[in-house]
């Protein structure tokens, strides 16, 4: 059984022993702490909702992005928000046929510098380094999916990654990597 009769709305500190008067004197601080706690809960809710939307990478509506090279030759599907050490896939698609069936893809120097490449499909016929960039030569007979490059960011930060044809203007991918 509990006694709920006449619950006091406030307490007269004079009715308390000295040690509890000290506790009661800290009530103002406690009330402010409770307010901060409630704000903290809202912040936690915001964090979870942002996570669901993909604001912290690892899939989600905000995380995915598509970029096209200025000459319309390639379309790149990628995660604009990534997490350090979490593998991600860059999908490069050729939007128009390549005359001689051989296509040279240039991956900007930020990729080998800040990402660890885990796999590259299909395997390029040739790969070489050119002024820090990675140039891949691929067989590409018709428009469609060209390359799926799986890589994991090695560091956190904001990066600009250039991907394009070796002889064309690149698409600039702005990527945020969370730690």
């Amino acid at each position: 059984m509990t006694s709920r009769s006449n619950p006091p709305s406030s307490l007269d500190p004079g009715t308390l022993p000295p040690e509890l008067r000290h506790v009661e004197a800290l009530l103002g601080f406690q009330r402010r702490s409770w307010r901060v706690e409630r704000l903290g809960w809202l912040a936690m809710l915001g964090l979870v909702l942002a996570g669901l939307l993909g604001a912290f990478g690892g899939s989600g509506w905000l995380a995915g992005a598509t970029a096209t090279t200025p000459d319309g030759a390639l379309r790149i599907t990628y995660d604009r928000i990534q997490r350090q050490m979490l593998p991600t896939v860059f999908r490069v698609e050729a939007l128009r046929p390549v005359p001689d069936g051989r296509l040279q893809l240039r991956l900007g120097d930020a990729l080998p510098a800040h990402w660890r490449v885990r796999s590259l499909l299909p395997h390029p016929a040739e790969s070489r380094s050119d002024a820090g960039d990675l140039v891949l030569t691929l067989q590409a007979g018709s428009p469609g999916p060209l390359v799926a490059l799986e890589a994991e960011p090695e560091g956190a930060g904001i990066f600009r990654l250039a991907i394009g044809l070796a002889d064309g203007p690149p698409a600039i991918l702005r990527i945020l990597v969370w730690p």
């Binding site: 006694s3 709920r4 006091p8 307490l11 308390l16 601080f29």
Partner: peptide, 18 residues
């Protein structure tokens, strides 16, 4: 106080402080 909080009186003289 900031990191640990402070004690809070919950019941005084048999009356809960709702």
């Amino acid at each position: 106080r900031v990191l640990e909080g402070v004690p809070t009186l919950l019941v005084a003289h048999g009356s809960p402080l709702p």
